[in-house]
């Protein structure tokens, strides 16, 4: 009996040594102990497909079609252009909500390169993004709203477009916030109310 215990203990210690504690880092895919119906023959987003020739479950729109809900009758709203020329003005409601949303989106997608203040001073600049535009520069202040919208959507120079990550509405919100940054960076004392000017002694 003593030997049975000895062999069992050695066995258990061996097993523990082999299995390791919870949370050990491993590249082996997780074992599914009770696999029941964990994996069903159905499709998940961005997963592999055995059916389609390109091996993807995600399908691209059929050529010559667009997805429902992505057609906008208002050409200026969708492209920033009236005919061939870039337009002026905002086709969205300009209010605090739009500005807050624009700030939120700007800080996610734009500030990484253009900087939180829009002046191009950002973390990625330190790592070699040297051609990033200074958004508060007069050159870009002179851009029309539609032109700025077009840059957000389609990119310009080395910048790729953000159409895949920003909805049409959000692109306009971002343009609105960029306008606010430009205003903040290029403000003069004339922008202040007379009371404030007096308060600051200007």
């Amino acid at each position: 009996m003593r030997y049975v215990y000895l062999v069992s203990i050695v066995g258990v210690i061996g097993l523990i040594a082999l299995l390791g504690p919870r949370g050990s880092v491993t590249t082996r895919p997780p074992i599914e102990v009770f696999p029941d119906m964990d994996r069903m023959p159905k499709y998940h987003p961005q997963a592999k497909s055995a059916f389609f020739a390109d091996g993807r479950t995600d399908r691209l729109p059929v050529e010559g079609t667009i997805a429902r809900g992505t057609y906008y009758e208002d050409e200026y709203f969708a492209t920033g252009k009236n005919g061939e020329a870039f337009g002026k003005g905002f086709p969205i409601d300009v209010d605090n909500d739009a500005m807050a949303r624009g700030e939120d989106r700007y800080n996610i997608y734009c500030s990484v390169c253009h900087g939180a203040a829009g002046d191009g001073d950002s973390m990625t600049k330190k790592y070699g993004m040297l051609t990033v535009a200074n958004l508060v520069d007069q050159r870009l202040v002179d851009y029309t709203d539609g032109q700025l919208y077009d840059v957000v959507k389609n990119g310009k120079g080395l910048m790729l477009g953000y159409a895949d990550r920003l909805s049409v509405e959000d692109r306009w919100n971002v343009v609105l916030y960029v306008r606010a940054l430009q205003r903040a960076a290029n403000g003069t004392k004339d922008d202040l109310t007379p009371a404030k000017r007096e308060e600051l002694g200007l």
């Binding site: 299995l19 919870r22 949370g23 050990s24 880092v25 491993t26 590249t27 082996r28 895919p29 997780p30 074992i31 599914e32 102990v33 009770f34």
Partner: peptide, 15 residues
Amino acid sequence: YYATPSYTRVGYQPA
């Protein structure tokens, strides 16, 4: 201890 995702899944770090 072992037959639970706390052991089987935690620590999975695929290449």
